[in-house]
Design a binder for these strands. Structure first.
Lengths: 166, 166
DNA sequence: GTATTTGCAAAAGTTTTGCCCGTGA
DNA sequence: TCACGGGCAAAACTTTTGCAAATAC
């Protein structure tokens, strides 16, 4: 799930953190070590995702008393500020990441749980067609689209061409 | 969320139920009143969705002692048999329905929770492009795609053109 | 100094599991 | 008969909430 061009979110890594803290302050919030540590952990994750629990563990390595509920509250705040987003990749917990400048679609294999991302242009026509026919503006990255990856499809084709599990 | 052509799943309503019970028996399972009642409730739901809890309430009106865990176990069994599917329309509980012969995509408005369905042809190009570029066979109906409906987009445009909530 | 954040503990919401009795074939 | 299914209670898992103590400004 990791790709290239790691942290070109909005300048260098440190900038992202400082800008986020600045946004919090502008909004009347306070700049705390825990909040900064959560953002830093997400910057380190780069193009990867992290669950709230994983972030809590990471933050705790620096500030051991950090509670998971604080991480949840911080993520909620950062999401309101547009700094982070969460995506549902499957049946497990939400996955968090810095908000991307280029939205993407996530595909998860219903059989092996592998996650693939797709280039935005693949969806461009779809987005405009849906907008025209239904008035909906699609927000691609919030729920993954499930499917079956090439390998699992090949394997399934041999054994049981019946039923469908997810 | 209800549309026309109610129960043309595979023949008439009763047939669907009998066929499902037959599948259960073929597999070595037993034909019980509770299992039949769950399928009947889904047939009555037609094109609509039901949560496990809603199904439990409905079944309990006929068999009051029915437990929710039995409904979950029945749904799991029926899903393995390919009779029913569940879809995640948003952050709430799974939504269940008879497996459709025509798969569809669900769009949920992240702001007002409204659910729209789209004609499959809108996604046809997407499905083949994704297959070509990634090898994934998309299974459209398992996770809804979120977005913003026309009304909510209009309302948002007036007040806060900033941030993004979901 | 005081409003905001945090840790802690408990609860909420959905789904799963263990166990033992009841039921279908 | 006897393996399978169901009721019940408890647990698992993720997330939210209330409250008092700690912290930022």
């Amino acid at each position: 799930v990791t790709t290239q061009h790691a942290m070109s979110q909005r300048g260098a890594a440190g900038e992202t953190v400082d800008e986020a803290m600045e946004l919090i302050r502008q909004r009347g919030g306070r700049s705390t070590k825990t909040r900064r540590a959560v953002i830093e952990a997400l910057v380190r994750a780069a193009e990867d995702h992290r669950t709230a629990e994983e972030l809590a563990v990471e933050v705790q390595s620096e500030y051991p008393s950090t509670n998971e509920s604080t991480v949840y509250r911080t993520l909620e705040l950062l999401e309101e500020l547009g700094v982070v987003s969460h995506v549902h990749l499957g049946h497990g917990p939400s996955q968090w990441h810095l908000r991307q400048t280029h939205p993407r679609w996530y595909l998860t294999c219903a059989t092996c749980q592998k996650v693939a991302e797709t280039a935005p242009h693949v969806f461009a026509d779809l987005v405009s067609q849906v907008a025209d026919s239904t008035g909906f503006t699609l927000d691609p990255g919030h729920f993954a689209v499930t499917g079956t990856c090439a390998e699992c499809a090949a394997r399934d084709r041999e054994s049981a061409p019946e039923g469908r599990r997810t």
